[in-house]
Design a protein around this nucleic acid. Structure first.
Lengths: 197, 197
DNA sequence: GTTGACATGTAACGAGTGTTACATGTAACG
DNA sequence: CGTTACATGTAACACTCGTTACATGTCAAC
């Protein structure tokens, strides 16, 4: 059976997925849950403790969702990056990722307030990206680039809401990588570069 | 001669480039300038008016700096994207761009507070990107992708401070586009795709 | 020398913040 | 029934916020 605190965490997650985390304060939070600020402090010791537990819960859920995607998609012919993108923009996952991006930006400008909530997520991501790339393309430059494409397109999606255009752009990137691979393959066999001029 | 208000704006710009804008409040701000909150309200009417003028000044300066880069670089053989990146990460310009990125993220999660300070910058950027691309590549997907690469790498630079790796990544992207262009050119003449398998 | 515009400081107001002191309810166990 | 642990509410404290009321300084113009 779920303890009182756990149901509280669940409700808090719901609230923060909608309202973001840069503006939360205890009284509005408590009112939205139909209770009092006193209760939140009672269960979480402090606002900081509350944020820590809520963000941990969020990341746990996100990891679960990510895991099931990997299971289902492991036999798929879909490109890993495309598969990752579709997962990220799914209605179920999007709000979680949006909030973690907000956290990352806040921490970048304001480490003393938000840095403590950042875990090793960024490094996790580059590991995931690295594993998804063929070995001969697993260079720091390529891993960084793929991560940046994903981050940049996701932030664009956050700002504009334009799912269609951002998805087109990631398809375009995948095609660019394929085409470049092709040129590089040919170039390795014989120097085809000269024929360009 | 500079009016008192103008020198105040200059000092405020300096302060905010260092401290970001999500946490500014009048009293610490005033203390840093050696004056009082009263004075700031007197000259700017309200905190909102102050932010508006400070951000306008920042964007004016950034546009000037961008203009001189275009003049100097117009005869250069450098790729436009590379040129743009070098400009963006230059010590002189980086703090300005960092602050505008912070603004954009804050506005995305909190439009009612920060949306008013956002001008038509995003659309300006995609126009700039579009002009820098050869006409036959000026598709929405490509423009969005290039913008996302730039945004993603800049944010990565903001978070990690790793100039070397992010610059390598943008070089890699430029090379990818070149190689893909090559394949696409060949493919247009005769269907070389089949030989891939 | 007085007037008047601009500039500036001190202190307060009302609202919102996280947190705490104190009281009270509920419900299981002896 | 009484005790005890958990849960919850009300009200306050000390603080910060943007803003304002009121007073004062500076300095040029008439």
């Amino acid at each position: 059976m779920q303890t009182r605190k756990e149901t509280l965490v669940d409700e808090l997650v719901e609230y923060m997925l909608v309202n973001g985390l840069s503006n939360v304060s205890l009284r509005p939070l408590a009112e939205a849950l139909g209770t009092s600020a006193r209760l939140l402090i009672y269960h979480f010791e402090s606002k900081e403790g509350l944020l820590t537990e809520v963000l941990e819960r969020m990341q746990t859920r996100l990891r679960q969702s990510f895991g099931t995607m990997l299971e289902r998609g492991s036999g798929s012919s879909e490109r890993p990056l495309k598969q990752f993108w579709d997962w990220a923009i799914a209605a179920r996952n999007f709000p979680y990722l949006r909030l973690l991006y907000e956290l990352q930006i806040l921490a970048a400008q304001n480490p003393e307030s938000y840095g403590q909530y950042l875990q090793q997520n960024a490094s996790n991501w580059s590991e995931l990206i690295a594993m998804a790339l063929p070995e001969n393309e697993r260079t720091p430059a390529m891993v960084t680039l793929v991560g940046a494409v994903f981050d940049g397109l996701f932030l664009e999606l956050m700002s504009t809401g334009d799912r269609k255009r951002t998805t087109l752009a990631i398809h375009h990137f995948i095609k660019l990588v394929d085409d470049a691979r092709e040129t590089s393959r040919v170039t390795h066999k014989k120097s085809a570069k000269a024929s360009a001029n």
